[in-house]
Every structure is written in C-alpha cells, then in structure tokens.
Design a protein around this nucleic acid. Structure first.
Lengths: 138, 138
DNA sequence: ATAAAAGTCTATCAAATGACTAGACAATAA
DNA sequence: TTATTGTCTAGTCATTTGATAGACTTTTAT
C-alpha cells in the first residue's frame, strides 16, 4: 500500500497539474482543497521540488507550480520519490535493488514471479503521467 | 514492498510445497534451511494454518504440511493473509476496501489508475500458485 | 525602509508497525 | 510417563510514519 504521504503527493500534483502554466499556487490553498495537514504538505512539496518536479516562488506572490510538462512526469517516478520501491521485493527492484540476505539458494522461484508482477505494474505506471491524474476543472 | 514476514512465508511454503504429501516437516527444519528465526516462523506457520493453507501435527512425529494441493493456492491469497492488501490504495482494494477520508471529489483521477495497476498485478498473482514457487529438489 | 506574506529547513513527537522473543501450555508417540 | 512437538498470548524493541513547532530567509506591496 502507498503511504499517506504518497497519496497526498498525488492529490497535490493533480491540482498543480490542472494549474499548469497558470501561476504558482499557495501551499495553503492546496492544503485546504485537498484536506491535507499544511505542515505535512510543506514537506512533501519541498521533496518534490528537490526532485525537480516542482518549482516554487517565495514572498507575497509565492507558491508552488509544476516545473515540467505534465506528460513528461511518469507516475512511477512520483511514487519512487515519495514512497520508494515499486517492486514487492528489493531483490527485484530496478531502482532500489538490494540482495536478499537469507536467500541461500541459487535458484529462487519467488524472484521471477515478483519480477513479472513488477513489470505488470510498471507497464501501467510508466505509461501514465501527471496528465492522467489532472484535476477536473469547474 | 512485502514485509519480511511475507517473504518468510513464501520461502517456507516453497519448501512445504516440495514436501507435499511426504509427511510433516519440523518448524525447526524449515527455520534452518530457510534461515528464518524459529519463533517468528512459528507465528507465520500458525497464521497459515488458521487460514487453512497448512495443517499441523503435534508430538514426536509432528510438524507442518500443506493442507491442499499446491495448484489450488494462489500467491495472491498467501500475500493477502500474511501481508494484507495487494492494491496500492485501500479505496481500490478488492478484499480490504476502505473509502478515502479526504477524497472530497466525486471524480478522483488517481483511483482508476490504481485500479488498473491492481488488475495488472493480480493478473500475475492470481495465475501463479504455490506450485510455481516450489523448491527444486536435490 | 519595512512589514506582511510566502516558502525553507531542522528538530521533535507520538502512534503505529514490523521483527522478533519469552514462556507457559497442550497434545502426542515412543 | 516423559521427551518432543506444536499452540498461543503477550511483550519488547527499533524503525517508520504522520504530523507539528518554530526559527529563518526571501520577496513584494506599501
């Protein structure tokens, strides 16, 4: 399951995508609309900024905005930033690989199944972008 | 990511599948072979017994054995027992559904993507059974 | 200038979860 | 009848997660 943080991140990005190229949005506005604790949201947005997904402006007319085109950001990328590995086992992770420490056997039958599962999810999450979770406008 | 517990469960089941219809296997033997802390493994096997996947025998010739045919146990089933939901969001879970509490919008764009992702994993995990992760024999 | 408004950053906290352990108990076969 | 095996409840300990506090910096409107 995705963490609450990851869910919040996706919700915030849905809003920011709808506002793409329409000027920065206040953290407080996002927090209000999406019912996210504001200080928690601050951390999340900052992390996404550090990952070059968002850009921010300070001062009176400040706020957050998408830094790149919505279609250029895969959902898999977002999830990796705010939630970590997508694979079910680290020994099968493409971006966070780590060998199993108790896997004595050369031939593990679990590994290939989990690799299949990983590919199946990635087939979805690599094809879907921020544009796909963009908030409807009113 | 699957918990350590889930990983241990799958490893233990790989061994028990190889021993299917060959009499009960000691917890201590499984723990040794798979390098799993024995008391932790006890809990896991007990849980799988309560879920009717395993059966156990006490006393001198005791131990654990698969209760049903390996091909009749889907990996998705095991994961749900020892790890919980397979879906990335509870609002998209088939077996552990729970509505989002901060989802004010009628139309959530995240939900359908996560449903797709869930279906993609399940396509693998519903088709694979214990027979697919059965330990090789020597 | 300067005050108000915005994001930045570090630190902290409580609660939940995860991984594991202890130990008394119950059943069974030799 | 006793050694061996599983049963079960409870507890510990470390880590992660979700959330908060508050001082600080930057920016803009006046």
């Amino acid at each position: 399951m995705l963490s609450q943080k990851a869910k919040y991140a996706l919700q915030a990005l849905g809003l920011l995508t709808a506002r793409y190229e329409k000027g920065p949005v206040l953290i407080s506005e996002i927090a209000d609309q999406k019912k996210i604790p504001i200080k928690f949201l601050e951390n999340i947005l900052l992390e996404l900024k550090h990952a070059d997904i968002l850009e921010s402006y300070r001062g009176r007319t400040g706020g957050y905005a998408l830094k790149v085109h919505p279609k250029s950001v895969k959902l898999s990328q977002i999830i990796r930033i705010v939630n970590g590995p997508i694979a079910m086992l680290s020994c099968v992770s493409l971006n966070f690989y780590k060998a199993c420490d108790n896997c004595t056997e050369q031939i593990c039958k679990i590994n290939p199944v989990m690799a299949e599962a990983r590919d199946a999810v990635l087939k979805i999450l690599d094809r879907r972008t921020l544009a796909d979770i963009r908030d409807e406008e009113f």
